[in-house]
Deep mutational scan, measured.
Amino acid sequence: EVTIKANLIFANGSTQTAEFKGTFEKATSEAYAYADTLKKDNGEYTVDVADKGYTLNIKFAG
């Protein structure tokens, strides 16, 4: 089991951190699915992958 950390960075400057656990593939998939649910209210997003994929910096356009 691994932990994927998602740093969520919103257009208004606020930030939030979420963690997803499971296999690497499952946790990564859940992180992207979570970002997709936030897209409606926060706009499109870009992802900067860090720490060999264990950290995702997800920035929303607003």
Rank of each mutant, 00 (worst) to 15 (best):
T15V: 15
V2S: 05
I58L: 12
T37R: 05
I9V: 15
A35F: 15
T23I: 12
N57A: 09
A27C: 03
A11L: 11
Y32S: 03
D36I: 04
K39Y: 08
A11V: 15
D36K: 07
G62M: 08
A18K: 15
Q16I: 15
T55N: 07
L38C: 04
A33P: 00
Y34N: 03
G22A: 05
G62W: 05
E1H: 08
A61R: 10
V49N: 10
L56N: 01
T23E: 04
K21L: 14
T55V: 10
F60S: 00
L56C: 02
G43P: 01
K40V: 09
K21D: 06
G13D: 07
T17K: 11
N42R: 14
A61I: 12
E44Y: 08
L56D: 00
F10L: 05
I4N: 00
T3Q: 05
A50K: 09
Y32K: 15
L8T: 03
S14D: 15
A31C: 03
D41C: 03
T37Y: 14
K40Y: 09
G62P: 12
K26D: 11
T15F: 14
I9W: 12
N12L: 05
E1R: 05
I4C: 02
A61T: 13
Y45G: 01
K5R: 06
D41T: 12
A31W: 02
V49R: 07
G43Q: 03
Y34H: 11
A18R: 12
T17G: 13
N42G: 09
E1G: 15
A31F: 03
N7L: 06
L56Y: 10
G13S: 12
A35D: 00
T37C: 03
A50R: 14
T55P: 01
E1P: 11
K5L: 05
Y54S: 07
G13E: 08
T55Y: 04
V49A: 11
T28S: 12
V49K: 13
S14V: 07
D36C: 03
Y32R: 11
I9K: 11
G22I: 00
N42S: 12
E30S: 14
A11H: 11
T3M: 10
Y34W: 15
Y45P: 02
A18V: 08
Y45K: 01
L38Q: 05
S14R: 14
T28D: 01
Y34K: 04
A27Q: 02
G53M: 04
K40C: 03
F20V: 02
G53T: 03
S29I: 15
K52Q: 09
N57H: 13
G13W: 06
K59I: 13
D41H: 11
I9Q: 11
G43H: 03
K39G: 09
A50N: 10
A18P: 04
L38G: 02
G43N: 04
E30W: 09
T23K: 15
G62H: 07
Y45L: 02
T23G: 08
K39L: 11
E25W: 06
G62Q: 11
Y34L: 14
F60M: 01
K21F: 11
L8Q: 01
S14L: 12
A6N: 01
Q16Y: 10
K59V: 14
D41K: 15
Y45S: 01
K21I: 07
K40G: 08
I58H: 01
F20S: 01
A18E: 08
